[in-house]
Design a protein around this nucleic acid. Structure first.
Lengths: 338, 338
DNA sequence: GATGCAGGCACAAACGTTTGCACAGGGCTG
DNA sequence: CAGCCCTGTGCAAACGTTTGTGCCTGCATC
C-alpha cells in the first residue's frame, strides 16, 4: 500500500501534523525536524493523497479543458494540438492536471462542463477558442482562449488581432503599397473583425481612405460568382497592388486566381496572410505569413488560470499575445512606387 | 455552498447513512423513504462530493489518457481526434472523466503517467497507440490501444490487422487476381507485420505461393532507388496485376508510378489500401480502402477500462476490432482472368 | 529563584462520504 | 402472551489530510 502521512510521522518520530507543516515549509518547525521529515518522506516515497487534501481545502489541482462542439472537428485543426501541448506544459510546471471536457453526441459542451464541475473534480475551466461564453455561472473560475464578444468580466487570452491586422497592413505600406485589399472579412468571426479594424487603422495613419469594395468577404474562392467579383476588382485600372488575406488557404486561392489573369505574385501583387501553415510555406511563392503560436497561447492561458486559482488575479485579466511575422517571398516593392 | 449529504438528510428527515443507502438503491431501505430521499436530493441539487467518496473507496472516476511523445505530433494525425471522441463518448456513458496525460518538453509520457497515478487522481490508464508498454508496473489497470509487441498480460484493443490483410487479399483474389503485390511492409511496425501474415494466409488458402520479391518494403516511393526497384517488378513479364498497399498515400504514389510506365489503375493493376483518407477518396481513381474507425476503437477501449475497473474483467482481455472495406474504383477484374 | 515568554511540537476536530454494527419496532410463532 | 426474527433505521468509525489550539520545555528576565 501507499505510504500515508502517518507512516512518515512514525518513521520520523513526530506527529502527522508536524509532518504536514514540515513538508509545507512552515516556519513553526525547526530546521532539524524539517530535514528529518523530508528525508523520511523521500525514503517512503510519500505522495500526499490529493483526495484528502481536496476534501479539506475544497480545491483540486485539476482544471477542465472544454472543447466546443465536436472534439474531432476542432482537433482536426492543427491549431488545437499545439494549444493543448502548451496547456499541458504549463499545467505540468504549475503542478496541475488537465481534465478533458468534451461534448459530442447529445451532450453539449456546456452540459459536460457542468458535470465536470458538479463532480467536484475541477476547480477551474479553460474554454477553448470559444466565442460564445457560458450563459450560466459555471461555479468555478473560467479562462477563455479566444476573444469573447462581451469582454467584460472574463479572463481571456487571445492573439492581438487588431495589432496583427495593423502590422500586416503596415508591412505592405512599408513596401510602398498604397492600394491594399483585405480578403476574407466575415463579421461572424470576431478575429476578422478585429483585423479589419487594424487594417483601417493602418490606412488611416497614412491618410489613405478605406475603399469598401476592397474589403472582400468571399471565403469560397472557388465559388465562381465570388471569384468573378474578386477578379473584377483586379481587372480595374487602379487595381490593388497588394492584399492582406485572412489565412494561407485564401492567399493560395488568390494567387491561383491572379495567375489565371496573368498577374504574378509578388511581381504584380504582394500578399501577406495569416496562420503560417505548411501549405503556405511550401507554396510558390512561399507566403509571408503571421505565425499565431498556439503553443504560447496555451502556456499563457494555463499560467493565468493557475494565478487566478491562487487568488493572484483579482480583477478579470485579458492578455493579448502578439503575432510574429514570418517574411518569405510573397511581398515585393509596389510596382508603381517611384 | 453546495448541498451535502447532511443537508439532504435533514430535508428528508433521516440520517446521512440512510440517504447514502437510499441513493445507492440499497435493498435495506423502504420504498417510501427512498422516494422521499431522492426527492429531497433533487430539490437541493445534491451532487455527492467525489473527493469524499474517493477518500473512502480509494477509487476515482477518472482515467488517464496517455499520449505517446509529443501530443502535437500525434494529434496532427486525424486518427487521434476521433479516437479521443470515442473515448470521451464512452467515458460519459460510464460516468468517467478523462485526464489528459502528456509528456512533452523534458518529461516523458511514462514520467507523466507516474505523476498522474501518484497524485491519486486516476484509477486507470489508457495508453494511446503505444507499441511500447511501460517498463514498470504503473500501479493501476492499463488498457492499451494498439498492439503491444508482447501481448501477454495486457488488456488491449486493436484493429484486427491479420484479418484485414487477409480480407484485402481475398478481395483481390475474388476479382480473379493471382499475382498480388504487398506494398509498405516494414517489420518495425507491427501492424504491417500482422497484415503481411493475413496476406500470406489468404494466398496460402488458394494454394498460391508467396513470392518474396513481391513483398515490397519501400515506403518512400519518391526515393528514386526504391521507386526503380518497384518499377522493375512491374516491368517483368509476369508482373503483378494487383497490389495491397499499407496506406492511401502509398497507393496514390504507386498509381503515379504506374501511370508513368503506361499502366492504368484499375485497368492494368487493381489496388486496395488502408485508412480510407480523404486523399484516397478524392483521388482518381477513388481508392478501395479499409476504414479503421478510430471512434469505435476509442469507445471499446473505454468500455473495457470501465469493466476492468468494475472488476468485471478478470483475465487480460484483448479485443480485435474488424475493419470495414469501402469499395470504390481502384479494383477491377484481373485482365488475364478468362 | 520564581515568573514570563517564546519556540516547538502534539492533540483533536473537521472536510463529506461509506459501511459494519447496534438497535428499535412490529409481526410472527409457539 | 412472551420471545424471536426480520425489516428499517441510526450511530460511529474510518479514509488521509490540514489547521486552530493548547501544552511542555528551556531560556531569559526581574
Amino acid at each position: 500500500m501507499k505510504a500515508t502521512i502517518k507512516d512518515v510521522a512514525r518513521a520520523a518520530g513526530v506527529s502527522p501534523s508536524t509532518v504536514s507543516r514540515a513538508l509545507h515549509d512552515s516556519p513553526r518547525i525547526s530546521e532539524k525536524v524539517r530535514e528529518r521529515v523530508k528525508q523520511a518522506a523521500k525514503e517512503l516515497d510519500f505522495h500526499p493523497n490529493q483526495m484528502a487534501k481536496s476534501l479539506v481545502s475544497r480545491k483540486t489541482r485539476i482544471v477542465g479543458i472544454v472543447f466546443p462542439g465536436d472534439v474531432s472537428k476542432s482537433l482536426g485543426n492543427p491549431f488545437y494540438p499545439s494549444l493543448l501541448q502548451g496547456l499541458g506544459r504549463a499545467a505540468g510546471e504549475r503542478r496541475y492536471h488537465l481534465l478533458l471536457v468534451t461534448g459530442g453526441g447529445e451532450v453539449s459542451a456546456e452540459e459536460a462542463s457542468r458535470q465536470a464541475v458538479d463532480s467536484g473534480y475541477v476547480s477551474g475551466l479553460v474554454l477553448l477558442a470559444a466565442e460564445d461564453v457560458p450563459t450560466r455561472d459555471p461555479g468555478v473560475p473560467v479562462v477563455v482562449i479566444g476573444h469573447p464578444r462581451d469582454e467584460a468580466g472574463w479572463h481571456y487570452v487571445d492573439n492581438d488581432n487588431v495589432a496583427a491586422g495593423r502590422a500586416a497592413t503596415r508591412h505592405l505600406l512599408a513596401h510602398g503599397h498604397r492600394r491594399i485589399l483585405l480578403l476574407g472579412y466575415d463579421r461572424r468571426y470576431i478575429f476578422t473583425v478585429d483585423r479589419r479594424l487594424g487594417y483601417e487603422q493602418a490606412l488611416g495613419e497614412e491618410g489613405i481612405p478605406v475603399r469598401r469594395e476592397w474589403i472582400a468577404t468571399s471565403r469560397p474562392i472557388r465559388d465562381p460568382e465570388a471569384g468573378e467579383e474578386l477578379a473584377a476588382v483586379f481587372r480595374a485600372g487602379d487595381r490593388p497592388t497588394a492584399a492582406v488575406c485572412m489565412d494561407d488557404a485564401l492567399a493560395i486561392g488568390l494567387t491561383g486566381l491572379l495567375k489565371g489573369m496573368g498577374l504574378e505574385v509578388p511581381g504584380d501583387v504582394s500578399i501577406v496572410s495569416f496562420n503560417n501553415t505548411d501549405a503556405g510555406k511550401y507554396h510558390i511563392p512561399a507566403l509571408t505569413s503571421f505565425e499565431i503560436d498556439p503553443y504560447r497561447l496555451g502556456m499563457i492561458a494555463m499560467h493565468l488560470m493557475a494565478d487566478v486559482l491562487k487568488g493572484a488575479a483579482d480583477a478579470p485579466r485579458s492578455i493579448e499575445v502578439p503575432f510574429t511575422l514570418i517574411e518569405r517571398d510573397s511581398v515585393a516593392a509596389a510596382p508603381d512606387s517611384e
